[in-house]
Simulated scan of single mutants.
Amino acid sequence: MIRTITIGSCVSVQGVVVGQLADGKVMVRVDEKTFVGYPVQAARAS
């Protein structure tokens, strides 16, 4: 599954989910690198 996470105040990364941490953060892999951050909420149509 592909997810988008934020790893800073304005930096986002999109990659394949490789794990989830107890504090709500998600780990995603992009090529050979793994990033950890908070998942971006899905946009909702009104």
Rank of each mutant, 00 (worst) to 15 (best):
M1N: 12
I2A: 08
R3P: 00
R3T: 01
R3E: 05
T4P: 02
T4A: 10
I5W: 00
I5A: 02
I5C: 03
T6C: 12
I7S: 06
I7K: 03
I7W: 06
I7M: 12
G8W: 07
G8H: 05
G8L: 02
G8P: 02
G8V: 01
S9Y: 10
S9D: 13
S9L: 13
C10K: 09
V11D: 15
V11K: 13
S12L: 15
S12C: 15
S12M: 14
S12Q: 15
V13M: 02
V13D: 00
V13R: 01
V13A: 03
V13N: 00
Q14L: 08
Q14N: 12
G15H: 06
V16W: 08
V16G: 06
V16P: 03
V16F: 07
V17I: 13
V17Y: 00
V18I: 14
V18W: 10
V18S: 04
V18G: 04
G19H: 02
Q20L: 06
Q20F: 04
L21G: 08
L21C: 10
A22V: 09
A22T: 09
D23R: 03
D23V: 00
D23F: 02
D23N: 15
D23C: 06
D23Y: 02
G24H: 03
K25M: 09
K25N: 09
K25W: 04
K25Y: 05
V26D: 00
M27S: 14
M27C: 10
M27H: 09
M27P: 03
V28Q: 00
R29S: 11
R29T: 10
R29W: 06
V30C: 11
D31V: 10
D31A: 14
D31C: 12
D31G: 11
D31E: 12
E32S: 12
E32P: 02
E32K: 11
K33L: 10
F35P: 01
F35C: 01
F35S: 00
F35E: 01
V36R: 06
V36Y: 03
G37A: 06
G37P: 03
G37W: 00
G37F: 01
Y38S: 09
P39V: 11
P39T: 13
V40D: 07
V40E: 10
V40P: 04
V40C: 12
V40Y: 08
Q41T: 14
Q41P: 07
Q41V: 14
A42T: 07
A42E: 12
A42K: 14
A43V: 14
A43W: 14
A43P: 05
A43K: 15
R44G: 08
R44C: 07
A45E: 08
S46L: 11
